Computed example of a mutant assay.
Amino acid sequence: MCRFLTYSGPKALMSPLIFQATNSLVMQSKYAQKRKVPTNADGFGLGWYPTQDDPIPATFVNVDPAWSNRNLKMIAEKVETRHYFAHVRDASKGMPVSQANCHPFGCMHYLWMHNGRLDQFEKFRRPLLNMLTNRAFDLIKGNTDSEYAFALFMDKLGFIANASLSQLEQAMEATIETIMLLRKEAGADSNAFINFAVTDGYHTLVTRFATLKEAKPASLFFGQGIISNNNGMIDFTPDTSNSACIIICSEPPTENNGRWTKVERNHIVCASGHESVYQRPVNLPFQAELG
């Protein structure tokens, strides 16, 4: 599985969270603290929204380990943005390491990431493909379960250009519901780890979800506060003022873990810009039956 983080806040460089923090995303690509296999070296990706009047995000992905790519460091140190996604990949068994398989994936002004795996994907890949519209089918350039899930999400959203937070939430839950139904019909009875993240450049939604009751979902945290640099030490102080940012992450990037909120099992985190963030249970009518 992978590691990722999202940032929404005042205009800032990406390097503090990606490179400089004690448990930065690049550090997690080598020594992840909250997963059994600590290395995430099968590529990386950035997606960020320009500060000029342009709603379409830029993306930069590569198959290098995040710690060895000089262009990643240059972009993180020089490009300012108010909203970005960052991801380091640990490819699932059987999934090729290629640029087409690196997150985040994009469509219109939406970005998508996944930490986890849809176990036994080969059993329900074809049924999932068969239900996609042509527009969603044409989105798929690689062969990861993550990108297929994004195509399904865009269909559930109806490719709406100006979706509300409620519409994004409904599409996310409908995506998980459909995946679980497809898995049940195909006899995929092992656990699926579903930490999906999606943004439209303002709203951000991230799930922490496992399909089996006895399974522990991949880690997820969030915080609202101010990032500061104290003599080279990146700190995070809880705050809800206009100067604050909202970060949703697989692991807290700073040492003061008590300042981060752990996302509960089978919950979804919803953020609106850098103004508000909350978590709530994922609402699936048949969840108890399947879990």
Rank of each mutant, 00 (worst) to 15 (best):
L5C: 07
Y7C: 10
G9I: 04
K11S: 13
L13E: 15
P16M: 14
F19M: 05
N23T: 04
N23V: 06
S24T: 02
Q28V: 11
Q33F: 13
N40R: 10
W48F: 15
P57H: 02
N62Y: 06
E77H: 05
K78G: 08
V79A: 14
Y84N: 08
S92Y: 02
S92L: 06
S92V: 06
M95P: 03
N101M: 10
F105K: 03
C107W: 15
H114K: 08
Q120F: 11
E122F: 15
P127S: 00
L129K: 05
R135G: 10
D138F: 15
L139M: 13
G142D: 10
A151R: 12
A151I: 09
L152D: 08
D155K: 03
Q167A: 06
M172Q: 07
M180C: 07
A188I: 03
A188S: 00
D189R: 13
A192F: 13
N195Y: 13
A197H: 03
G201Y: 06
L205N: 01
R208G: 03
S219C: 14
N229E: 15
G232E: 04
T237E: 02
N242S: 12
A244K: 09
I246P: 08
C249N: 04
E251T: 05
P252L: 07
T254M: 08
T261D: 01
H267V: 00
S276F: 14
Y278L: 15
F286A: 11
Q287T: 02
